[in-house]
């Protein structure tokens, strides 16, 4: 190894894997990264919900700001809020399903390639179905 290469190697940072641009995605890596992403999302949503409860408790009187204004901004915010709720609900169900999959792995079950593949797809499908079911139930019961 020449001296030049040596210097280059020691100076450059270590290569990061997976190499995202040439990476072939498969179900196991998708479920793994989604588990982490949804976990982080849920952590921050729990923080927001907790501090909202604190705000609700210590604000004077109940929060009753009824805005009948049909401004564009309010509509956009409502849509964003609804989207965020759907994302959080999906994250919750997905993390729940995939977490149970992880717990089965921890007791040593479901490690076969085929089983792991099937359960990976199942956790995404179940999470999506549960999200759709929850939204339909809430809309059907005129909750929102």
């Amino acid at each position: 190894m020449s001296n030049n290469t040596k210097n280059k190697l020691s100076k450059t940072t270590l290569p990061t894997s997976p190499h995202l641009q040439i990476y072939r995605w498969n179900i196991s890596s998708i479920t793994s990264i989604m588990h982490r992403l949804t976990g982080v999302a849920l952590y921050f949503s729990i923080l927001i919900i907790a501090w909202f409860i604190v705000y609700y408790t210590y604000s004077f009187g109940p929060i009753s700001e009824k805005e009948n204004c049909e401004c564009l901004m309010t509509e956009i915010l409502k849509t964003l809020f609804f989207g965020a709720i759907i994302a959080i609900v999906f994250s919750l169900y997905y993390h729940f399903c995939n977490g149970i999959r992880h717990l089965f792995w921890d007791i040593g079950k479901g490690f076969e390639l085929k089983t792991a593949k099937i359960t990976g797809y199942l956790s995404i499908i179940f999470a999506t179905l549960l999200t759709i079911a929850t939204i339909i139930t809430t809309l059907y019961l005129k909750l929102f």
């Binding site: 907790a50 501090w51 408790t57 210590y58």
Partner: peptide
Amino acid sequence: FVSITTATAVILAILKL
């Protein structure tokens, strides 16, 4: 720090409610 602070605050709020 954030987790412990949040947990304490929210438990106090829930107890008050």
